[in-house]
Design a binder for these strands. Structure first.
Lengths: 333, 333
DNA sequence: CTGTTAGCGCCTTCAC
DNA sequence: GTGAAGGCGCTAACAG
C-alpha cells in the first residue's frame, strides 16, 4: 500500500507537493499536478487518513450512539445523521448501546479513543455523566431526543409532553372515557413527560388517569397491558409511550380475545414513518426523526467548525399525527 | 486532552512505561503501575488510537457496507458483525450504499482511507471491481450474501436456489398450480438464483413458470404484481424474491380487491426473523442473517490475524422456513 | 523492570 | 511554485 513518499519519488517531487495536489490543487502548477496524478493512479495511492488525522488533529469523523438499533426510530436517526455528515465530508462511526448505561459509557470511550471530532448521543437515561465524560475531553456533543434541563448542552428534541396531551385529546374526542397509559421507565424523561401530558389531558376532561411505568419494549407493553386490561371495567383505549409498547399491548389484546380497534383502541408514540412500513397499523404521534437528526448533526458541525460557540441550544421540533387502523370509537357506541 | 507524555511526566516515568501499563501491564512493577494509573485518572487520559493506529499499522476497525439500511435484513447484518467484532475488541465502521454501485465504490474508498483492517461487503451487483479495489490495497475482504463464482474470495451465504425450490414446492403442495415469481434485478445473482430455483420446482411439477424481474423494492413489487395479476387466469400464488417485493405485491392485491391469503397466497425471501416483527404476516424463507454475519466477521478476523490465509472459502448456511398468515390453499378448494 | 531512539504518514511552517 | 525540517501520539526495537 503506497504512501505519500512513494508517490513523490515516482513523480520526482517532494512529498509536500503530493500533499498539495490532494489538498490545494491550485497551488501546484498544471504540469506538476498531472505528473503527480499519474503517479497516484499508477501506484493506486489512497491517502491515509490516520496519518492525516494525527497531524491535523482532526479525524473528519463523528460518533453517533443510538440506544436500540432494532428500533426503526434509530434507523431514521442514523439516516439523518449520515446524510448531513456526508454533505460536509464527515464519516459517521456509530454504535448502539443496547439501552445500557454501562455500554453507553464504553462506547463513548471508544469514540473518544478514536478521536472523533464530535459526538451525537441518543441517551439511555440522560445522566450528566455521559455528557461530562465527553466534555472533559473538550469534545462537542449534541443530545438527541432527550430533554436536558439545567444542563448547558445542545439538544434536539420534540415537545413530547404537549404531543402526549394532544394524542390523549384525540382519543377523548373519539368518545373514550376509560383510558390508560402504558409508559416506559420512569427514570427516562420522555417516559415521564409522556405520562404527564396524558395526565394533563385527562385532568382537563375530569377523568382518572391511570399510568403504568415499564420499559420501551414489547414484553413490557404486553405485561402492562395485561395488568390494565384484566378488569371488568377495563380501559377502552390505551395510550402507549412507544411503538414497541404498542406492539406488546396489541399482543396482549389478542391474547385476551379483544379486537383492536373494535374492543380496544391503541395510540402510540415513536411511530415509524409511514414510508418505512407497509400498511401502518398504529395511530399516533410521528416525530420528524430524520430532520431532527440532520439538524443535530449541523449543530454539532457548527461547534466543530467554530461556526457557533455560545451556550447550549434547545431546539424543539414539531410533531405530527397520523391516524391509522388502531383506533375506533369505544365499543357499544 | 492529555497525551501519553503528559501522563509520563506526571508519573515521573518514560512514555514507554505508560504505554506498557496500557498494553502489557504485567511488564511493569506494581508500584510504577499504580503511579501511572493514578496519573491517568488525574489527567483523565484516554489513549489516542489515531497515534496508535499509525504506529501499529492496525486500526482495530472493520468496515461494513450494507446496501439498504431500511431493510431489517441489513440491521441483522449490522448486529451480527458488531457482536462478533466486539468480542475481538474491534470497532465497526459501517456505511450504506443505497444500492448504488458508485456509492459502494465511494464508501469502500472511504473505508480504505481510514485504513480499516478489513472489509465486509454486502454487494449491490457483485462486480469484481469492488473486490479488486479492496484487494489491491492488500486488505482482506469477505462477501456477504452474494455468490462469487470464479472469484477467489471468502463468501458467506445461503443456498438461495435450493431454498427457492423448496419454497415453491411448499406452495405447490398447498395445491396451487398457477404460480408466478416476482424477482429482483436480473443483474443480481440472488435474483437470478431464486428465479432458477422457482423454475426448477415448477418444471418438476410440469407447470409453466412465469418470472418477472424487477427490483428489491416494494414499488417494483407492486408493479410486477399488477402486471401478473391483471389477467383472468391470474396466478393464485406469488413467490417473491424479497420482503419488500412481497409488501408491494400485497399492496397490489389490496388495490385489486384480492384478499391475501384467501384469493392470493404470497411467499417470500428475506423474511425478517419473527422476533423482530410483531405478528409476522409473510410465509417464507428465513436466513440466519445474524449468525452468517458473525461467521463472516470471524472469517475476516481469521485473515486479519493471520489465523488463515488459504484460498477463498465459500461458506453456505442452511435456511429455514416459517409459515405465517400469507398462505392458504388456492381459492375454490 | 525501565528508558532511549526512531519512525509510522501526513501536513504546518518556513525557506527558497 | 516547490522543498526541507519537524512533530502530531504512539510503540517496536534495542539498551541498560
Amino acid at each position: 500500500m503506497a504512501n505519500i513518499r512513494d508517490v513523490a519519488r515516482h513523480a520526482s517531487v517532494a512529498p509536500m507537493t503530493v500533499s498539495r495536489v490532494l489538498n490545494q490543487p491550485d497551488a501546484v502548477s498544471v504540469e506538476t499536478r498531472m505528473r503527480v496524478e499519474a503517479a497516484i493512479q499508477e501506484l493506486k495511492y489512497v491517502p491515509n487518513m490516520v496519518g492525516q488525522g494525527l497531524r491535523k488533529r482532526r479525524t473528519m469523523a463523528l460518533g453517533l450512539l443510538v440506544s436500540d438499533i432494532t428500533n426503526p426510530f434509530a434507523i431514521q436517526q442514523i439516516q439523518g445523521v449520515t446524510r448531513a455528515a456526508r454533505e460536509s465530508d464527515y464519516t459517521v462511526i456509530f454504535g448502539h448501546t443496547e439501552s445500557s448505561p454501562a455500554e453507553e459509557m464504553r462506547q463513548l470511550r471508544s469514540l473518544i479513543e478514536r478521536r472523533v471530532d464530535g459526538v451525537l448521543l441518543s441517551p439511555v437515561y440522560g445522566t450528566p455523566e455521559a455528557i461530562d465524560f465527553v466534555r472533559e475531553q473538550s469534545l462537542p456533543i449534541v443530545v438527541l431526543d432527550y430533554a436536558m434541563p439545567d444542563m448547558d448542552v445542545d439538544v434536539v428534541r420534540c415537545d413530547t409532553r404537549a404531543a402526549s396531551r394532544e394524542l390523549t385529546r384525540y382519543v377523548l374526542e373519539r368518545g373514550h372515557e376509560r383510558i390508560a397509559m402504558l409508559s416506559g421507565d420512569e427514570a427516562i424523561i420522555t417516559a415521564r413527560d409522556r405520562a404527564t401530558g396524558f395526565q394533563e389531558a385527562m385532568a382537563e376532561a375530569g377523568l382518572p388517569a391511570p399510568v403504568s411505568f415499564g420499559h420501551y419494549t414489547s414484553e413490557s407493553g404486553f405485561e402492562m397491558a395485561m395488568g390494565m386490561l384484566d378488569s371488568p371495567r377495563r380501559p377502552t383505549a390505551l395510550v402507549t409511550a412507544s411503538n414497541f409498547i404498542a406492539m406488546g399491548a396489541a399482543e396482549a389484546a389478542q391474547e385476551l380475545g379483544l379486537a383492536v380497534p373494535d374492543d380496544l383502541s391503541i395510540v402510540t408514540f415513536d411511530n415509524a414513518r409511514t414510508d418505512m412500513v407497509h400498511d401502518p397499523f398504529f395511530t399516533g404521534v410521528v416525530q420528524p426523526v430524520t430532520e431532527m437528526s440532520s439538524a443535530a448533526t449541523v449543530m454539532l458541525l457548527d461547534r466543530i467548525l467554530g461556526r457557533y460557540d455560545g451556550p447550549g441550544r434547545d431546539e424543539i421540533f414539531p410533531t405530527s399525527f397520523e391516524a391509522h387502523r388502531s383506533t375506533a370509537p369505544p365499543p357499544g357506541t
